[in-house]
Simulated scan of single mutants.
Amino acid sequence: MIGPEMLDTSRGQDPAPTEEARGCLFALSQPPLMIFLTVIGVLLLIASLHDLFLL
């Protein structure tokens, strides 16, 4: 037998989401992405300095 504390009291609607939508700034704050972008930036800087001063 089901006691009163075990009755289903759901209303049929999903509760409002508590998590906010995450945008581009959240994605950019991830360490692997920042390491990748730093490596690409350093490679571009080295290539541009090579073109400027050695060619």
Score class of each variant (00 low, 15 high):
residue 35 I to L: 13
residue 52 L to M: 06
residue 6 M to N: 08
residue 34 M to D: 02
residue 3 G to Q: 03
residue 5 E to H: 15
residue 36 F to K: 05
residue 55 L to D: 15
residue 17 P to M: 13
residue 29 S to M: 07
residue 45 L to I: 10
residue 50 H to E: 12
residue 46 I to M: 05
residue 53 F to S: 08
residue 30 Q to G: 01
residue 36 F to D: 00
residue 52 L to D: 02
residue 33 L to D: 01
residue 47 A to G: 15
residue 11 R to H: 13
residue 29 S to F: 03
residue 1 M to G: 05
residue 23 G to E: 06
residue 16 A to N: 02
residue 50 H to V: 15
residue 15 P to A: 08
residue 28 L to I: 09
residue 5 E to V: 10
residue 28 L to F: 12
residue 37 L to G: 05
residue 5 E to S: 10
residue 27 A to Y: 05
residue 46 I to G: 04
residue 47 A to L: 15
residue 4 P to W: 06
residue 11 R to K: 15
residue 27 A to I: 09
residue 46 I to F: 00
residue 5 E to A: 11
residue 17 P to V: 14
residue 25 L to Q: 14
residue 50 H to Y: 08
residue 33 L to M: 09
residue 10 S to A: 03
residue 5 E to D: 13
residue 6 M to F: 06
residue 41 G to A: 07
residue 35 I to M: 12
residue 3 G to D: 05
residue 19 E to H: 10
residue 24 C to W: 08
residue 50 H to I: 14
residue 44 L to P: 01
residue 18 T to L: 13
residue 15 P to R: 04
residue 16 A to G: 01
residue 46 I to W: 00
residue 20 E to A: 13
residue 27 A to N: 01
residue 28 L to S: 02
residue 6 M to P: 00
residue 30 Q to I: 01
residue 16 A to Q: 10
residue 27 A to H: 05
residue 12 G to A: 05
residue 50 H to F: 13
residue 44 L to E: 12
